[in-house]
Design a protein around this nucleic acid. Sequence first.
RNA 1: GGAAGCGUAGCCUAAUUGGUAAGGCAGCGGUCUUGAAAACCGCCGUCCGUAAGGACUUGUGAGUUCGAGUCUCCCCGCUUCCGCCA
Length: 421
Amino acid sequence: MIDMRLIRENTRDVQTSLKQKGVDFDLNIILNLDEERRDIIQKVEALKRQRNTISKDVGIRKKAGQNADNLIAETTSINEDIKSLDAKLGELDDQIKTFMLQLANPAHFSVPVGHDASENVVIKEWGKRKIFSHKALDHLELGEKLGLFDFQRGTKIAGPGFPLYTGLGAKLERSIINFMLDFHTEKHGYKEIFPPFVANSKSMTTTGQLPKFGEDMYLAGKDELYLIPTAEVPVTNIHQEEIIPVDEFPVKYAAYSACFRREAGSYGRDTKGFLRLHQFNKVELVKFTHPDESYNELELLRRDAEDILEALGLEYRVIDLVTGDLSFSAAKCYDIELWAPVEEKWLEVSSCSNFEDFQARRGNIRFRPNGGGKLQFAHTLNGSGVATPRLLVALLETYQTEDGHFKVPEVLVPYMGRDLI
RNA sequence: GGAAGCGUAGCCUAAUUGGUAAGGCAGCGGUCUUGAAAACCGCCGUCCGUAAGGACUUGUGAGUUCGAGUCUCCCCGCUUCCGCCA
C-alpha cells in the first residue's frame, strides 16, 4: 500500500512512477475521495464533541439528583446526524481502501524506465557457455531415459503441470532442496523456516496476491485457504501485526515450500516439461530490514542466490527489470536466469525484489527506530534461492555425459551418495 | 466437533449499580547536573486540523443507552479440558 500522505503531497511523482509501471489510474479519484473524507470527519467530529459535552452534563446532573430530560432531548437530532455522517464516512473509507489495495507499488528511482521485458537490462553474466561435442539430449529425453520423472502419470493423478518425480529423480530433487537450504543457513546466515503451504486471505493481502490476483491461486473454498504460490507469503506474514526489535535487523529467513500456481491465462505457453508448472519446489529467501538498509540488502540477497548457481557451476545472467516489467508489489527487482544449453534459452530461476514498505503497510509490520520515536514500517525483501524445475532443466542439460547419463555436480554428491546417474 | 475461560497501548497491569480508560516498566525530549543516576515536567496508539484544539481507540463488527472496557448478539484469536485422529 502506498502512503496516502505521499499521494497527497507528491501526487505528480507518484502518478508518473505509476504510469512508468504501466498503471493507468488517475490519482485524483483517490484524492477527491480523501478530501471528501476529511471534510466529513471535521463535521462529524464537531457533532461528537457536542454530544460528549452534553453527555457529561447529563451525568453531572443525574448525580446531583436533577432532571436532565431537556439535555437528553437535544442529543436526538445530533445522534441522527452523526449516524448518517458516520455511515457515509464508512463508505468512503471502504472505497479508498479498495483503491489503495489495488494500486501497485511505484518503482524505485534506480529502476530503468521501460515498457516491457524486451527492454530489461542485462547487468551481469557469469559462467562458461557449454558446448557439446556430441548430440545432446534435452532435459525431457534425458530424464525419461534415466527414469527421473513421469509426466504422464503425474497428469493422471492431478492433471498437467503436476510433476511426478521418481526414483533417483525424486532423490535428486530432494538433494537440491537440502543443498540449497544448508547453503543459505550455514553460509549466508539465514534462519530455516518450514512454513504452512496454505495461507488465509489476510496473509495473501499483505504480500499483494490479493485482492487483485486471486485468480492465479488455488483456493480450498470450504476453509477459505489459498495454496501458497510462494513461501514469500507465509514467511513474510510471520511478523504480520508485529513490532520487530530494531537490533534484530536484518531478519533473514530461508524456507522451502511447494508452490502452487494456476497459471491462468498462460495455457499453451511453455507447456513442455518443467518450464511452467502448477506445482513446483522452491527455496525462498525473505528479509525484513531497516528502511536505510533495504537496497544494500537487496544486493546481498541477489548475491546469495547467485552463489547457489556458482556452486553448481551453471551459466547465469542477471537482469535489472524495467519499470514496465516490475510486479505489482515490487519497487525494484532483479531476475536471475540460467542458460539451458540444449533448449538454448535463458530460464528464469529467481526474482529478487525489494518491496520497501509496501507489504509492511498492508501487514502492519513495524519497528521502533533507534533513539526512540514513532513506530515505522519495516522494509521487506525476498528472492528465490532458487526454484528447482528450471534449475533441474539446466542441470540435466549441462551435466549430461556423452553416453546419456547425468554427472552429479560435486556439491550434490554428498546428498545423492553417488556421482553418476 | 463439544465445554469453560480470556483478549486493555511496545510490555505489564487497574477501572464501584454503565458516568467517559488510572497506573507501572521500557523508550524519547526537557529541567537540574562537570557527567551520570535520582527527582520533576512533557511526549510515548490512530485520524482531522497551519495551529489552538478536537475526534476516535479496551480483538473485529453490530445493538441497547444521553453515555459502553462494563450489558446483549455475530465473528476472530489464544488458553485449558473433553472427543476424534497422524
